[in-house]
Simulated assay, not measured.
Amino acid sequence: MGPVARVLLVEDDESVRRALSLALGRHGHDIVEAASGEDGLAVLRAERPDIVVLDLMLPGMDGFEVCRRIRAEGDVPVVMLTARGDDLDVVGGLEAGADDYVTKPVRPRVLDARIRAVLRRGTPQQRPVETYRDLVIDRAALTVARNGRPVSLTPTELRLLLELSQSPGQVLSRQQLLRAVWEHDYLGDSRLVDNCVQRLRAKIESDPARPVFVQTVRGFGYRFGPV
């Protein structure tokens, strides 16, 4: 059986990088490494990994800028490594386009679980093609189109859209979405949901400030429309 995933690990601390590489290798992943943001982008283009594990505090080009460039170039998912309890790091990383985060010191078992959860978001679901106004969702092919043009979504954005659109009109709380999309046990972290909703709206809504498809239900959560 082949590796679970080809993982690009971008971490400037050599001891941390080597320890995580060895641990993730034992979990079945194929690891490629980079010690800086600039090297990370070069390795990304050369190696085409399935997922990037990215430290935010890098010398030179920091992790926020690296994440923005990764997101500008494609949809490879990003799990960021951040200092424990640093809300500014978490929010900044999510706004830059990260799919999930793990706090330092990193427990390899937790990081492996987050990697697998992100990759599972691309698992096909057997449902027909669905059309909502100018938005077309093909669950079998895992594609989304708007006005006849493909919409490029990250695995997390796609999984969020699939989860919301499974039951149009039904309100899903942030806690329900965290369980279903991110598979998180800690349910207090609604920032993951809110930032992903913002990114999704920017891609599928004609006017993200007046969303039609991903609607906010104040005090409760989100629902998929129009209904």
Rank of each mutant, 00 (worst) to 15 (best):
V181P: 04
L172I: 08
D112K: 09
V171S: 06
E130Q: 07
V43H: 00
G122C: 02
R218A: 14
V171H: 07
E33D: 10
A46N: 05
A141K: 06
P168T: 07
D138T: 03
R45I: 00
F64V: 10
V7F: 03
D89K: 08
M57N: 14
G148I: 11
A140T: 12
V10N: 04
L41G: 00
G122D: 02
V78W: 01
A72W: 00
E65W: 05
L41V: 01
P77A: 02
L44W: 00
E73L: 01
F213N: 06
A83S: 15
Q166N: 11
A42P: 00
A117Y: 09
T123W: 06
L200F: 03
Y132S: 05
E163W: 06
R84M: 14
V197G: 07
D62Y: 12
R84I: 12
P108E: 11
E130H: 04
A83T: 15
L44D: 01
Y222Q: 09
L161M: 02
V212S: 09
Q175T: 15
P211A: 10
M57E: 13
I70W: 00
R6G: 03
V171P: 03
V227L: 15
G60I: 10
L164P: 09
D75A: 03
D89P: 07
E73F: 02
V181E: 04
F224I: 07
P105G: 09
R223K: 15
D185M: 11
D30L: 13
R120N: 10
V151Y: 04
D86I: 09
A72C: 08
S21E: 14
D207I: 07
R18L: 15
G122E: 02
E183H: 11
A202C: 12
V171I: 13
L20Q: 13
Q170T: 14
G40Y: 01
V212D: 10
R179V: 14
C67N: 08
L81G: 05
G219V: 08
E65V: 12
Q126T: 14
G219I: 08
L153Q: 04
D86Q: 14
G148M: 08
A180C: 05
I204Q: 01
Q175H: 14
R120C: 08
P59A: 12
D50G: 00
A83F: 12
V102D: 10
L88V: 12
T154N: 01
Y222I: 09
V76L: 00
A72R: 05
L177Q: 07
D99N: 10
L56Q: 08
L24H: 08
T103A: 15
R201L: 09
L135I: 04
H27A: 15
P168G: 07
P155R: 04
V102G: 12
P49K: 01
Q170W: 07
M61T: 13
V90P: 02
A98H: 03
P150E: 08
A96M: 05
G28Q: 05
L58W: 06
V129N: 06
W182E: 06
L164G: 09
P155L: 04
A35K: 03
F224V: 07
Q125W: 11
D62C: 12
Y186D: 13
Q215I: 12
G92W: 06
V79W: 01
